[in-house]
Design a protein around this nucleic acid. Sequence first.
DNA 1: CGCTAGGTTGATGGGAGTCAATTCGCGTGG
DNA 2: CCACGCGAATTGACTCCCATCAACCTAGCG
Lengths: 217, 217
Amino acid sequence: MQGSPSPEMYLVHEGWLACSVTVIDGGRQIVSLHTPGDLVGFSTTHRATAFDQIHAISDAVVSIVKHSVLSDVFEQRPRLAQYLMIKSQEDQISLMHRLVSVGRTDAIARVSALIGELVERHVNAGGKEHDSIAVPLRQPDIAELTGLTSVHVNRMLRQLRERGIADWSAGVIRVQDPAALAAVAGIQRKLPRSIPDPVRCPVDSSGYDHKPHGIVA
Amino acid sequence: MQGSPSPEMYLVHEGWLACSVTVIDGGRQIVSLHTPGDLVGFSTTHRATAFDQIHAISDAVVSIVKHSVLSDVFEQRPRLAQYLMIKSQEDQISLMHRLVSVGRTDAIARVSALIGELVERHVNAGGKEHDSIAVPLRQPDIAELTGLTSVHVNRMLRQLRERGIADWSAGVIRVQDPAALAAVAGIQRKLPRSIPDPVRCPVDSSGYDHKPHGIVA
DNA sequence: CGCTAGGTTGATGGGAGTCAATTCGCGTGG
DNA sequence: CCACGCGAATTGACTCCCATCAACCTAGCG
């Protein structure tokens, strides 16, 4: 629960979990989505009180992992520790994607980006049928993920359906036009940018100080 | 640069860095802000191509740290590895805050939340003068952080000034009414919630499977 | 059979984006 | 010293995307 101490993490075996934050006026934002294989709650291990809530999107089966094992893992199993770190970094990159989507794109792009992310996850998880994916998210869940209202999510889904891009109904996503979906989503997920735009970097090259690598603890 | 391989991290000594993502239509979103002591670029260490751009907000002095040292750190200096992980988790929590702010609160709350975050950072970094903080962010930077336009950021700053809550001008933040600022920001940063709202958790308690702790690699 | 959660659709309003003009401070060069 | 340019700040007018409110439908379920 948000605000109460949470000395545990969850390793997901089946089902989907979500990590969300509730604001004062009652609104909620889902900050991350977790499918089987994910370790949930890792990012708040060093905090006395949990900042977020973990709840199940669908029925779920999890293993409970105590925070206290982490020290031992780092001391005795460095490869495992590094693996955990990589998983955590993937979560962080996913968070960055979501922030960009919510902060800088309109409603249709956000919903499209979510669909794209779910398809990518499904493929990365070894899923077969690229054109038809079962997803337990409800429209209110989509709204909490995208920073929209469920009413508007509904309209965006209808638009994607009517434009022949994707159909998400009855818990199943069917992408009919992947190229159009990516175009609407508006964010490159993998491809390099054609223009490298240096932005404001040149300004500060003056004060740079290069040292041989080495980390100060 | 976004899309190009980036085999390095930066340890900030002086100045501020930002990590941002550019979308197709030209808009940009700053996903994280880094002050002296931070290690930037850590979250994308395992990726072949960088997803984000790192650029300097002000003139900066940094040390360059190669990604390749990470394996050695994990093998030989577990405490340091754990420290790095904690820093990374703090970044992730900051990202979650920003996502919630952008996704679920209005413009005045986002700007207030940013001010609150900057004040908190300043205090955590051992800053003294609580009522007057020098910050190198320009209004366009604030816009890229909050998912707003610089025009609207300006209006929100004026509103905070006219309401006697905070004054941010000429690169200096002066918080006049911290309580009002926190109220406007709308998100509890530390305090526990009074109401524990179970939300949809009860639904799934049926399928839970508790096992003794232990991690499957 | 009523209850409830979710889905669907329409009407309306407001918050924030967009466009545009003005001002200000600062560095740069004539 | 002043003209010029530029980035940033500021302000106003207008537009539009999305939230809000509200009604209705459907399916599942006790």
